[in-house]
Amino acid sequence: MTAIIIEDEIPAARRLEKLLSEKDFTVFAIVHSVKSAVSWLKDNAHPDLIFMDIKLRDGLCFPIFDKVKIQSKVVFTTAFDEFALKAFEYNSLDYLLKPIDVAKLDKLIAKLETFKAVFYDSSYWKILETSMSDPYKASFLVNSGMSVKKISTADIPYFLSQNNTTFLCFENRKFPIQRSLEKLESELHPAHFFRISRKYVVNRKFIIEFQNDFNLRLQNSNEKFPVSRQRRSAFMAWYKE
């Protein structure tokens, strides 16, 4: 496999390059700033993976995505975890804290190999990318054991944000997805889905009871889904439509 490293700390970059070389990666380049990364990505074929530090010499890395359509899978690296949720908005394959733990790197490579086994043709990677970026998504792909499961958006009762992770909740299972609820709000059809609180986005089709205390009940769930005070008026207007 091939990779580039976008990292402003030279010792950290050299260490990662050594680790990847030991795992049979070909590292095409090491670049140290947003500007140099944009230049390299515009002028070269994109590798299989990009290991991208979040804080670079000339600022945060996220503007790179506005200037270049990245064809690679991205693994964010950083010494801080404060940007984990924002990193998930960019459909990263993983998020590694520095100094990078070899066991976690091995786990990442195993995950990639699993994906490659399932998506053995490049067209399948394209399907995955499309499913993760199109507005008003028709379906989601989630990891289910050693396979990938496709779930129709219309069949998803709700999405849950918990412990800095977003879960797609389906058939009494919680599947982690690399998205924030904010990102989901722009991808889900507003006629069918509503964010009732910081924690939940619910599917109108599955609401079976709307209680006076602004708790919802959904099909096939014993949980209560409270509508936050700040969203009650908007929810009532949405629910009446």
Rank of each mutant, 00 (worst) to 15 (best):
F115T: 03
R204Y: 01
D8Q: 01
R14T: 02
E7G: 08
R204M: 01
W40K: 03
E182R: 10
E22V: 03
M236N: 13
D48G: 08
K107N: 02
A154E: 15
K86M: 12
D94Y: 13
K104L: 15
R195A: 08
F88H: 07
Q162G: 03
I151T: 10
Y124D: 10
E22N: 13
R195W: 06
H46V: 12
L168W: 08
T26E: 14
L97S: 03
A191G: 10
I4W: 02
S228G: 11
H46M: 12
S36T: 12
E7M: 05
M132E: 15
A37L: 11
F25G: 07
Y120W: 04
D48N: 13
T165E: 13
T166P: 06
I64Q: 10
E113G: 02
I196D: 07
R179F: 13
L181E: 03
F80L: 13
K35H: 14
E187S: 12
L181G: 08
Y124F: 14
R173H: 12
K42N: 14
N203G: 04
F80Q: 12
V202H: 01
Y120I: 01
P47K: 01
R232I: 08
F206G: 00
P190V: 12
C61E: 11
C169D: 01
V75Y: 10
K42C: 03
S180K: 04
F28D: 15
I100Q: 01
A237M: 05
T165I: 15
L112F: 14
R195M: 04
Q178V: 02
F28L: 14
F225V: 11
L184W: 02
S197R: 04
I5V: 10
S161V: 06
I196M: 05
R179S: 11
C169V: 15
F76V: 00
K73I: 03
S144V: 04
K69S: 14
T130A: 04
K107P: 00
Q230N: 12
S21K: 14
K183W: 00
A13K: 05
F159N: 10
W238A: 11
A103P: 06
R15H: 09
K18F: 10
R57S: 14
M132C: 11
I70T: 08
S186L: 07
D155A: 14
A87V: 09
F115K: 07
I100F: 02
K116A: 11
H192Q: 14
L20N: 07
K116S: 09
I196H: 04
F193T: 08
I208M: 08
I109D: 07
S180T: 15
L20M: 06
S144E: 14
D53H: 03
L60N: 03
Q178G: 03
F170H: 15
N203Y: 06
